[in-house]
Simulated assay, not measured.
Amino acid sequence: MDKTLFEILACPLCKGGVRPDKERQELVCRPCGLAYPIRDGIPVMLEGEARTLTADERMDEAP
């Protein structure tokens, strides 16, 4: 995905920024603890399609 796309994408719940997780093909929203899938290069920014980060993943996300 184009890097500039990440600058304009926002979490649909909190309107915060998302960061790419290339390994898992997801966009991660740290404040909400959600990961939105990227399917065929298209981000699926729907709450119903997002998965909740595990406690371990949330710990890995800490600054």
Rank of each mutant, 00 (worst) to 15 (best):
T54M: 01
L46D: 12
K15I: 04
E7D: 14
P12K: 04
E57A: 02
P37E: 12
R58M: 15
L53N: 13
P63Y: 08
E61S: 13
V44E: 10
E23Y: 01
M1L: 13
V28T: 06
E57Y: 01
P63G: 07
A10H: 08
M45P: 12
G16I: 05
C32I: 05
P43K: 05
R24V: 00
L5H: 03
D60S: 14
T4V: 10
E57F: 00
R58H: 10
D2L: 13
Y36T: 13
E47S: 05
D56M: 08
F6C: 10
C11F: 05
E7A: 11
A50H: 10
E49P: 04
K15G: 01
L34G: 11
D40Q: 14
Q25H: 10
G17I: 03
M1H: 03
V44A: 06
P12S: 05
V44S: 03
V18I: 15
R24C: 03
V18R: 06
T52N: 11
V28A: 09
M1P: 12
E47C: 00
D21P: 13
E23T: 13
P43D: 04
I42K: 07
E57M: 01
Y36S: 12
E26F: 01
G33T: 06
V28M: 06
R19H: 06
K15S: 12
G33P: 09
E26K: 01
P20N: 02
D2S: 12
D56K: 13
R39D: 08
P12H: 04
V44Y: 04
P12Q: 05
L13G: 05
K3F: 02
P37M: 08
Y36R: 13
A62G: 04
E61D: 14
G16Q: 13
P20K: 12
K22C: 00
D40N: 15
E47R: 14
E7L: 05
R58W: 14
R30Q: 11
E61Q: 15
L13E: 15
P43H: 08
G41K: 02
L5E: 11
A35L: 02
M59D: 14
E23F: 00
L9Q: 07
G41S: 06
L9T: 09
M1N: 04
V44G: 00
D2T: 11
K22F: 00
L34Y: 04
G48P: 06
C32H: 02
C11I: 07
G41C: 09
E49L: 00
T4Y: 03
D21L: 06
E23S: 09
K22I: 10
K3I: 13
C29A: 04
L46N: 12
K15W: 01
G41T: 05
A62E: 15
Y36E: 11
Q25N: 11
D2R: 10
E61N: 09
F6T: 09
T4E: 13
I8V: 15
P43F: 00
P37F: 06
G16R: 08
D2A: 12
G48D: 12
Y36F: 15
L34P: 11
I38G: 03
